[in-house]
Design a protein around this nucleic acid. Structure first.
Lengths: 354, 354
DNA sequence: CTGAAAGCGCTTACAG
DNA sequence: CTGAAAGCGCTTACAG
């Protein structure tokens, strides 16, 4: 519990003024090498570490980035948080992480708390609720994955990514498809959903229309399981042959439901997710999904904070299809029909992994 | 980007001195009600928010708790982090979260960064590597789940919890058991492992010894999958009838391996985990595991910071067995034998869930 | 009960 | 190139 050494201590030890100490600390080139050396020695001897609080007060600038995610318990956001931290570290910035528990009130609270601590920028993956901040912010802010207020958004190209999945299922011969959407008050959920059905509609003109049912839920396991259970308790003739979900968690929940009802995936039912969380390749069968470019997203969001406010435009990064074991040909289709379909879109395979 | 109002602005607006403003802010009772009201009005009018940086500099005290976890991407720690945040919020404290990526160097770095920001206390779930901090800390620090240095530890009673699992498997008739341990440089891994084999040894004296093989891995999915794959590629006669893992992630990896080798769980092989992460009940079959009392752990760790340094003794909280579908009777055992075993420990059922 | 003043540890014009 | 001094926004003895 000793008192920490200050610039004053260092100055005394080195026989210079505090101004000089401060200058070598900030790397000013104008300091005479002999003094610089003395100061550095003193710093080493005393084990001096600058007081960032004092520095922040003086300069009203810190090297910490505030990050808010809707739910740190969601593996996608955990991954995103880890990636943001890495990206920040590369610029030798620290990140303060807060979880809003999908509560706009908590979100607002955290933003204010960050501001109180004079973070140098804020990245927020918005909660589902309608959120807006009245006051003008003194620091750059950017939305990540889910738009917050009207701030610029760095996200996966959800429409493109979702269309990849629509295509995949259509080409496999599915014509009766259920889509488990995310909460409609999130932009990502809306865009994914539109991307999915629009592509399906387009394709419908080429090789026969597909029938798609949309069910809304949250992004979590439980929603997926509950909704899939409902869908699958329909008489077999009315059931979809494929279920696409707006998140891997939902898809894994759906997998669980199919399993409980002893419906064979992918033989009788295809299930696909969105995100490509670590778990996707561990479930049985392994989950076909769309990969979000998490590291790139995180890196761009961090860069955004530094580049502001020159560019304030949204940025989208393409997702990629990852085909694994949970999707397969539609049951009603004969093998040669499938082959025919596939020939129509030979580039599909390029996007696959594993 | 407006200048934020300060105590001085509030003082002017209210027609009092800054000292008085500060006093009403800190809730001092000595302020005359009429002045207090004026000040509160001024605060409201200006939308004043105290500058926590200045306050921290002056008092060298903040209301933020630093939390370091080895890997935020691990669902157990994500859950732990969320719980710590809740507990902190109840005391109107904020938490700064950092992930060490299991790197003692990063861990050290983060602790110093926290200290630089004068957090009021630090909770650390230690990385696997040998970690120690030379300097005396100016704030209380407590280990959570995994001991850091020599600091007091709040953790699940790993020995008790692991013994619960040993018992469960033994009673089911398993006599050839593999244990996937965690990294031996973590205390939790060592204690779980000892708790498991000790209890098995004890039971061995009552109804015949059990043969247990120990394999070491990390706590993650991949380790579990890799180790299980090795184990299960032995000739059937040499295979264990049950695999217990030191984490749910390992167990889920093992489940995956069993599935790939088309070994029926729990018919031919029982698999059990440790933690009870959200996912445990979603895998197929649902995972039998030991639940760690995450909320209680988090709450105690936070309290610890406030009570320090009066008590500096370790605190352990019991875990509980959660029996689901991934464990069953050993294949070699006849049903009536199992029933007999179960009668010996009728209290076992009380711990079960679902 | 309240105001004036010192000081937390820095940084940064301003002189020299 | 370097030192002395002001000041960031608070809190808290110290007077009165």
């Amino acid at each position: 519990m000793r008192r920490m050494p200050t610039v004053k201590d260092v100055a005394e030890q080195a026989g210079v003024s505090v101004g000089t100490v401060s200058r070598v600390l900030s790397g000013e080139t104008s300091v005479k090498p002999s003094l610089r050396e003395k100061v550095n020695d003193a710093i080493a001897v005393l084990g001096y570490r600058p007081n960032v609080t004092a520095r922040a007060l003086r300069t009203s600038r810190t090297e910490v980035i505030g990050l808010i995610v809707p739910d740190i318990t969601n593996p996608f956001f955990a991954q995103l948080a880890a990636s943001v931290e890495s990206a920040a570290r590369e610029r030798s910035h620290t990140v303060m992480l807060a979880s809003s528990h999908n509560d706009p009130e908590a979100e607002r609270h955290h933003i204010l708390a960050f501001l109180d601590r004079s973070v140098c920028g804020i990245i927020v993956a918005a909660s589902s609720g309608r959120s807006d901040l009245p006051l003008e912010l003194p620091v750059p802010i950017v939305s990540l994955d889910r738009r917050f207020g009207n701030y610029a958004l760095v996200s996966t190209n959800h429409a493109q990514a979702a269309s990849l999945m629509a295509e995949h299922l259509y080409v496999l011969g599915h014509r009766k498809i259920a889509y488990i959407a995310g909460p409609p008050d999130t932009e990502a959920a809306r865009v994914r959903r539109e991307g999915f059905i629009n592509r399906l509609a387009e394709l419908g003109k080429t090789a026969g229309p597909a029938d798609v049912t949309i069910l809304e839920g949250k992004f979590d396991y439980d929603s997926g399981e509950r909704i899939a259970r409902e869908l699958l308790s329909l008489p077999p003739a009315d059931r979809p042959t494929a279920i696409a979900a707006a998140s891997d968690q939902q898809a894994i929940g759906a997998l669980r439901a199919a399993r409980d009802l002893t419906i064979d995936v992918p033989r009788k039912l295809s299930i696909a997710g969105f995100d490509d969380i670590a778990l996707a390749k561990l479930v049985v069968p392994r989950l076909t999904t769309v990969r979000q470019p998490v590291e790139k997203l995180a890196a761009r969001a961090v860069e955004f904070l530094f580049d502001q406010p020159v560019l304030a435009t949204d940025e989208m990064i393409d997702g990629s299809l990852v085909v694994r074991g949970s999707t397969g040909p539609a049951i009603s289709m004969k093998p040669d029909e499938i082959r025919k379909q596939h020939r129509k879109r030979p580039d599909d395979a390029a996007a696959n992994k594993e």
